[in-house]
């Protein structure tokens, strides 16, 4: 049985036993290592999210390149005012989530919770606006796919333009998947707010809040691209 032992080894073993913050998992040597790992893991997860959406952007690019007119016509029926408002709503929620990290870094529990809850409210607002947008479309028979059957003034003429359904399919799939991410994000943020309230986090350790924040920003970034491509063609 051979085991190379050297000063460094004992050192790392010691570190582990001397300070043992409650959040430190046994297989990490230090909080720093644990934090760095979590963060790199999160960034890797975020690029999987980006690549997941990339296929939708590619589909968008391909069909828009082929049918620019149909896309322009179809896009003009989307409500750019609501879209802009939603963009601002999400940007604000990004700000509040960034603030929550700022406050937890300063150990200000109350402000952290408030920032997180504001984020939650803004995210909810985004979904409500999105709901009304969807409903306005469904009312006029604008559905993804086969069910697409535009009715009513301002929409009827779409039926005659080929490839308009492609635009709406892409629109619904993209915003739908984005919406699912918003819902998941709300769950995470609510959970973080509760944990922050419970006092789980401090300036020593707030990794989950930071990771949730990263996730939320990516959701925002995807919307930043969706907005001009879908609403402002």
């Amino acid at each position: 049985m051979s085991t190379e032992t050297a000063p460094a080894t004992t050192e790392s073993v010691e570190t582990e036993h001397d300070h043992h913050p409650p959040h430190l998992q046994h297989h990490f040597v230090s909080s720093e290592q644990q934090f760095d790992s979590a963060k790199l893991g999160m960034w890797l997860f975020l690029i999987t999210e980006i690549l997941l959406f990339s296929a939708l952007f590619v589909a968008y690019a391909v069909y828009r390149n082929w049918n620019p007119m149909a896309f322009a016509e179809a896009s003009s029926t989307l409500d750019w005012v609501l879209g802009s408002v939603n963009t601002i709503v999400l940007l604000t929620s990004s700000l509040t989530v960034a603030l929550s990290i700022h406050f937890i870094q300063k150990n200000d529990k109350q402000k952290t919770v408030i920032s997180l809850l504001s984020t939650l409210v803004l995210a909810g607002g985004f979904l409500v606006i999105k709901y009304f947008e969807y409903m306005a479309k469904f009312e006029h028979g604008i559905y993804p796919g086969e069910a697409f059957a535009p009715t009513g003034s301002g929409y009827e003429y779409l039926a005659a333009i080929p490839y308009v359904p492609q635009f709406f399919s892409i629109y619904f799939v993209m915003t739908g998947i984005h919406g699912v991410h918003v819902v998941i994000g709300m769950g995470l943020i609510g959970w973080m707010a509760w944990r922050a309230h419970r006092g789980d986090f401090s300036d020593e350790w707030y990794t989950p809040v930071e990771l949730t924040g990263l996730y939320w920003h990516i959701v925002d970034i995807i919307w930043i691209f969706l907005f001009p491509l879908l609403y402002l063609v």
Binding site: P144, G145, E146, Y163, P165, Q166, S169, I170, V173
Partner: peptide, 15 residues
Amino acid sequence: LEQTLQIGIFDPALG
């Protein structure tokens, strides 16, 4: 989605 909703992204019959 192509199967269930016929979103017409991959199926040539749907454009």
